[in-house]
Amino acid sequence: MSKVTINIDGKEVQAESGQTVLDTALANGIYIPHLCHHPELKPRGVCRLCLMEMADGELITACRMPVIAGMVVKTKTKKVDKAIRPTVELLIAYHHDTCRGCPAIGKCELQTVMSHLKIDRKRVRRLRPPPAKKPLDKMNSSFDYDPNRCVLCGVCINTCEDIHGVSLLYYVGRGHETKVAFYGDEKKCESCLECLARCPVGGLMLKKPVEVRH
């Protein structure tokens, strides 16, 4: 593998050719907001938060962009901010629950994104409230799915397909009704919990142990 040098936000960094800009940035201590990226999975480019500005002004997702020797990218420009800040604000507006009681507390990627962008919760109030809370999906025997906390990054779907090779989880529905579901195949799930381990937020959570009454 040959090494190439690229410039991210004015900082010259070394990258392996074939690596993506996002992986390079993260390896060099430059944080670029992201939710759907996972180092063990193929980049999907669906959360749209790792958008960066290319030299020609075009916005491209860093997670799918391979490094090119000498490329200059910027991740903190006004243009980038105008594109991704409303996206994060929308996510928060549609994220029903508060962080209290969330299984992802402390390791939540959405919290990381919010603090990185210094999201002003007051600005979120200008948006209309989301539709009614959706019920939990409790079909699986070992974990529950919370569509209100899920950000639909697709990491669980890809894990099931790429890591476990089972492909039981998939998107169902359209528009804001879209959610992750088992497509009626939940009995085939072996409860490897690889998906749960990779969920960047609290979309998937272990079932609470059944209380036994004495």
Partner: peptide, 18 residues
């Protein structure tokens, strides 16, 4: 459009609904 959005990317899924 908000009904026909495929739902995979956040700006389109939530943004058009908003």
């Amino acid at each position: 459009t908000q009904r026909e959005s495929c739902g995979q990317c956040i700006p389109c899924r939530i943004g058009t609904k908003q």
